[in-house]
C-alpha cells in the first residue's frame, strides 16, 4: 500500500520528465508548447497530491457535519493560480508561433535556424 501511495509522486515525476523531454527534444514549436503544458500539469498534480488528507473531504463546509476532516485548501488555491498562469503563457506562446509561421513559413526550429543563418 505504501508504494501505491508513493505512486502519485512517481506519476508527477514521470509526467514532468515526459513534458521536459518534449520541450527539449522536439523541434516543432507547437509540440514544444504541448510539452510545456504537460510539464506544468505535472506540477499541478504534485501540489494537489499534497493537499489530500486521508478521510478528509473537499474543503467546503457541509451543514451539520461535526468533526469532519477537510483537505488542505491552500495548495488548491495555489494551483488555481498556477493553472491560470499556465494558460496565459500558452496563449502568448501560441500567438508568437502564429507570427513565426507568418514570417518564416515554418514552425520547425531547425528550419528557422537555417533561414536565419542565410
Amino acid at each position: 500500500m505504501a508504494l501505491l501511495e508513493l505512486y502519485h509522486y512517481w506519476v508527477f515525476v514521470v509526467l514532468l520528465m515526459i513534458g521536459f523531454y518534449a520541450v527539449i527534444a522536439k523541434l516543432n514549436l507547437i509540440k514544444k508548447l504541448i510539452g510545456l503544458s504537460l510539464f506544468q500539469a505535472a506540477v499541478f498534480l504534485l501540489y494537489i497530491t499534497m493537499n489530500k488528507v486521508e478521510g478528509g473531504t473537499a474543503p467546503i463546509f457541509t451543514d451539520g457535519a461535526v468533526d469532519q476532516l477537510y483537505s488542505n485548501p491552500l495548495p488548491q488555491v495555489l494551483i488555481l493560480t498556477a493553472i491560470v498562469v499556465g494558460i496565459s503563457t500558452l496563449a502568448l506562446g501560441l500567438g508568437i508561433v502564429v507570427r513565426i509561421k507568418e514570417e518564416y513559413d515554418t514552425i520547425e526550429e531547425h528550419e528557422i535556424q537555417e533561414i536565419d543563418r542565410q
Binding site: I30, I34, S37, A41, F44, I48, T49, N51, K52, V53, G56, T57, A58, P59, I60, S71, P75, Q76, I79, L80, I83, V84, G86, I87, L90, A91, L94, V97, V98
Partner: peptide, 25 residues
C-alpha cells in the same frame, strides 16, 4: 483528491479553452 475547484478549472481551461486555442493556432 478532494480538489473540486481545481478540477472544475482544469476541465474548463485544459479541455475547453486551451483546446480551442491550440486548434486556432
Amino acid at each position: 483528491l478532494d480538489a473540486a475547484d481545481v478540477a472544475l478549472t482544469e476541465a474548463a481551461v485544459g479541455a475547453g479553452i486551451s483546446t480551442v486555442l491550440f486548434l486556432s493556432a
